[in-house]
Each structure stands twice: as C-alpha cells, then as structure tokens.
Write a protein that binds this DNA or RNA. Structure first.
Lengths: 231, 231
DNA sequence: CTATCGATGTCGTCG
DNA sequence: CGACGACGTCGATAG
C-alpha cells in the first residue's frame, strides 16, 4: 500500500461527473490498484476514489496545467467501464509504501456468536463427558471458536458456522494443523458445527477426520430459556 | 491526519459484533477522531471503522493480551452510542502525522437532473412529432419529470431515472393513475426513460402499457455539444 | 428534529 | 455473471 500526502485537485467522470478543488489530502493506493482520496474528516467514505479493477498511469501535465502548478497527473482508469479519475498533484508532502500482505478479513459474530455462546453452555451436545476449555481460544492465525476436552481429556477444536461450507472446513483444518504442532495439546480432533452443512463441506470434513455436528438453534435457545427460568 | 501502519487485530461491538484477526493494516486517524482500518485491497470501505463523533484512548494491554504480543490497545468509543472499536497493536511499522486543513469538498454535476435537461432539449428522441410541455410538471403527489405531447397531441408523462428499477415504474404508475383522472389531460400514456432498465422493471412497465426508453447519456451529451457548437 | 430517498452506494447470497 | 436484498449503510433534503 502506498500512502501519499499531497496538495491536489481531482476530476471524476463515469456514472457522474465531479471535481475536487485544490487542497491537501491523503491518497491511498492499494495493491490491487484502487485509489482513495481522503480528507481529514467525515465518514469512512473517501471524497473520491476508483474501485478495482483499475490501472494507474502517471503522465506529465499539459503545459497549461503546468503553469497552474500541476507537477504530475495520475490517471486512474477502470478496466471494465469508462470510469476515470484524474488527480492533479501540485505538491507531494509525503510518499511512503508498505507491504501489507493478504488480509484474513472481517469476521462477523451475529448468529454465529450466539451459536458459540449456546454451544459453550450446552457443551454436552458434543457428547457425554465433554467439558469446555474456553471460547475464542487464541492462536497465531486467529481464535478457535470453542476449545473443549472429550470424556478422555483429549483436546477438541470446534468451528462454528451458521451455514457450513467448504471454506469453514478449510479454516478448521488450518487451526487443527497448527494446534497439532503443539505437543501440550496434540492430538487435537475437530468438530465442524453448523445450523446447516452443505454436502460438499460434509464430504470434505469427514474425509479429513473432522466430525460434523448439526446445531438446532431453536432447540438450543429453548434449552437456554428453560435453564434460566428454572435456576 | 495520522496514518499508522501496524500489525494489529481488532474487535467491534455496536450494531453488530465482529473481529479482525491479526494482520498488517493501515490505520487512519482523522482530525475529527474517526478511525479507519484499511487492508491492501477491496473497495473504499474500510475493514472496520469508527465514525465521528468519537474519542480514542490508548490503554495498556491486559497481561494475558500482552503475552500474546499486544503492545498497546486503542479503544475508540463513539460519543452518542455504545459503539466501540478496540484495536490491539502488536507492532507499529510506521506512524506519521500531517496537517491537512479543511477540505472544500466534492463538487458534483448532477446526472438525473442532467438527463432530464438533455431529454427536454432532445424531445424528438421520444419519437417523431413529440413536443415538450414542461419539465417538473406539478401534480398533487409530486412533479412529473417531463410532460410532453405526441404527434397526435396526446399527453405523455415521462419518468427519468439513471437506473430504471421497479420502484421507478411504481412511481410513474401513480402519476399516470392520477393524471388520467383529469378529463382535460386523459388519456395520458407513460414513458419510462433510463440509462439502464432492469428486466423486472421492463416487464412490469410493459405489462402496464408503459413504454421503456433507453437513454444514451454520452450520445445525448455529444448531441448537445454539437448543437451548441453549431449555433 | 424525524422521515424519506438517492448513491460513482458496497457487499453478500443465490440462481 | 446478473438479479436481489441487507447494510454498523451514509448523506442530503423536505416537512
């Protein structure tokens, strides 16, 4: 990612036409070529931007623009439409670049969080003698939803999804691979728990020795209500 | 504006709960206190953020977090709600600050308004012998974008959208129903004009006897340029 | 102030 | 790939 602080002006043409008068702004150029022009306030929405896929090209300014103080022009062109963003750079105050790598992305804990909470309380749903170690068990590549021990005291890593698909199985597989390198924990077995498990995900999981567990959300909520009412 | 490049993890609680696993990201702290967490790809939307008004507070990590490598925690709290963003900073790779000043903001050239203007000038695009009655023709439930007459002198109500979807057809239908109650105007036919018309909108419109007209914005702009250059 | 609507909406899911 | 609905929607405008 490249971050440039510069006095600049900009023009956008595409679904509409718009322009930005000269001011000092932060320009973010992402690895996929997308460009964001941010001011020092407002919401998360940039003043102007170009979404990927797009390409950026540095061109010399027209003589007339050069006279107005434009040192360099960035032409950002979308690859699938005729959307185009042109940035007139008048003065670059800072220009830095950093290698960020791929991002694992945001994990939303909606129903999934509630399922996790319920299963942590009703850990016996996993089988007789199961006990909870902790929720959000930390690892270097992210937290495991639930860590438990079975009746024999062996570790069990549980990945919870609302809808169980292949990527969830892959995620659990990565956790298991990592956890099984730890001699204090190994052997760690896996449980893929979801309200709904797609056939392909089930096949992949079982092929890897991961147990699949269908969760009855309504039933679990009912059990919770019952226990809170009784005790 | 402060720009920090750091290996970090984050948690958000508010309208939903979500977390970001550890990764290297760009953190933007704006003058109004708002915070944006960007990855090196995707669109202009940050992975996570806090909108103003909000306050940021640096706190020391819990001992347990410290063991996991958390050097510093940023707690960003919204001032009017209980939205909260916590960022675990593991390693700060860069931390810079720049004075940007107030931004004059984006200046837009309207699109729907421009389409209306262009079609009013180029009313012959509707068909031979069409004439303009007026733009923004007033009715009790709001103005009709363009009122025209066809070659036979019959009234035609035109609804203009950039993207024609079902709600636009519904809107025009309401106008037509009202206008056709007026014996001085009736019968009034309808034209749904847009740069792009969704299939469902087209089906609905044609089922109701409303004609669909695709508008070529670029072409219309070109025609305008030509006429202004010629005369 | 709230209600409504448009957006360079963006983002997921499903067919 | 395209349609459809949800969004931590955001933001402007009318009432």
């Amino acid at each position: 990612m490249r971050v440039v602080i510069a006095r600049c002006a900009a023009r956008y043409t595409g679904r509409l036409s718009a322009h930005l008068p000269l001011a000092t702004r932060a320009i973010m150029v992402k690895a996929d070529g997308s460009v964001l022009l941010h001011s020092d306030g407002g919401s998360y929405k940039p003043l102007n931007w170009m979404s990927p896929p797009c390409t950026m090209r540095e061109v010399a300014p027209e003589p007339e623009a050069s006279e107005r103080g434009v040192a360099l022009v960035w032409v950002v062109q979308h690859q699938k439409s005729d959307d185009r963003l042109e940035i007139d750079l008048h003065e670059v105050l800072s220009d830095t670049e950093h290698e960020l790598g791929v991002d694992p992305g945001l994990v939303k804990d909606g129903v999934e969080a509630h399922l996790q909470e319920l299963l942590a309380e009703q850990v016996s749903l996993l089988g007789d003698g199961y006990t909870l170690v902790r929720r959000e068990f930390p690892t270097a590549i992210g937290p495991v939803d639930i860590m438990a021990k079975d009746a024999n005291g062996a570790s069990v890593a549980i990945e919870i999804k609302r809808r169980g698909e292949i990527d969830g199985v892959e995620q659990l597989t990565r956790y298991l691979e990592l956890l099984n390198r730890d001699p204090l924990l190994a052997p760690v077995s896996g449980v893929f728990a979801a309200q709904e498990i797609k056939p392909q995900a089930r096949v992949l999981a079982e092929d890897r020795g991961i147990r699949c567990l269908l969760l009855d959300y309504e039933g679990m909520r009912g059990a919770e209500d019952l226990s809170t009412r009784l005790f």
